[in-house]
Design a protein around this nucleic acid. Structure first.
Lengths: 199, 199
DNA sequence: GTCTATAGAATGATAGAC
DNA sequence: GTCTATCATTCTATAGAC
């Protein structure tokens, strides 16, 4: 049983959400800067002016997508923290949650991970992301001081490396593919905690 | 004792290598597509036309940088293979070599890792990179079949995750920073093989 | 008539190339 | 500096479903 789309009034055609979805898809294929509004219009089979009925600017599309990604990651962190338990469990839940967000909202997260900070919208998103990273690093540092993670690797480096592994999933994961998000989470956690060497 | 620059004849100014170096630096800061030739000219304090004395097109700069990165990675693989020993040692050397290339030629490698395939130059580089990845995957697969790497994680996924971790270094490593490439290599190999859990 | 989606033509600014 | 092409954006008007 799938959700029934609310009947829409007026002339049929694309709605805001659909335009956004396809725009983000195209931004990821070609890069945000390399994608012109004309490209997007052609992809949708619309004129450029028709597009501007749905949004105010090209940058607004980017902004909406980035908010989506950041909201997902931030709530994954909040959920992981809220469920209590030891810091090791919290970190495991966080990795699982982040990978779930990354696979379910892959296009939006991919955009976020590729930002360069070329505009106020981009720098604001990067700042939110930096804040997220800081909180994760604090968790790793705490886990080290409690002895549940090895302490011979700098907490900042360990965090960057493990989340580099997590984030790299955005570069190749495809929802239609054969790899399930669950399996992927298990693999990442296995490598991050136990490593690839047989025990 | 540093290498002495050969005395240059003719009117002083930027040479080809210097222009390329600064261009790649700027491409990474702003993104290739978001960087205009005017931006680069301003950064160099030159006119646009003076820039075109040094190169044929903006894309040629990209092409030269990508060749640099790919040559580095490919020779790291060849070296790792040539030195013999078990496949586990080969993989360890490869990771070390890749991180060395990544830190020493960080700007060029970063450009490579961000490609979208928007032009023939880009797709050609992506194809070379794909070929490199395939060879690495074959090594991981062999290591699994020999039992020196755990076999319960798909070889393709394991390769992507570990090299995702390696490649993510490009996003934050700064040569001037406090983290040495040697230390970083050791940390990556420690996590990839042993994991973060205390033994 | 109302509501939403769509076009066409033209704006000024900036792109890469020479 | 100059070229032409393309960029994001805007104005005004219309098409189609209730």
């Amino acid at each position: 049983m799938t959700a029934q789309a609310a009947p829409r009034r007026g002339r049929p055609g694309y709605d805001r959400a659909e335009v956004l979805r396809i725009a983000v898809e195209l931004f990821n294929q070609q890069g945000y800067d390399a994608t012109s509004v004309a490209d997007l219009a052609q992809r949708l089979g619309l004129s450029k002016s028709a597009l501007y009925h749905h949004f105010d600017s090209k940058e607004q599309l980017l902004s909406l997508a980035l908010d989506d990604a950041l909201n997902g990651l931030e709530s994954a962190l909040e959920t992981a923290l809220a469920e209590g338990g030891g810091v090791a469990d919290t970190l495991t839940r966080l990795i699982r949650g982040a990978i779930l967000v990354l696979t379910e909202q892959q296009p939006q997260v991919t955009l976020l991970l590729r930002l360069r900070g070329n505009s106020p919208v981009e720098t604001a998103a990067l700042e939110r992301r930096r804040s997220f990273d800081q909180k994760v690093m604090a968790l790793v540092r705490q886990a080290q001081s409690e002895g549940v993670l090895r302490g011979d690797i700098d907490a900042g480096i360990a965090t960057r490396l493990v989340f580099g592994m997590v984030n790299s999933i955005a570069e190749w994961y495809r929802p239609a593919g054969s790899v399930a998000a669950e399996e992927l989470s298990g693999d990442v956690i296995a490598i991050a905690l136990e490593g690839l060497q047989p025990r």
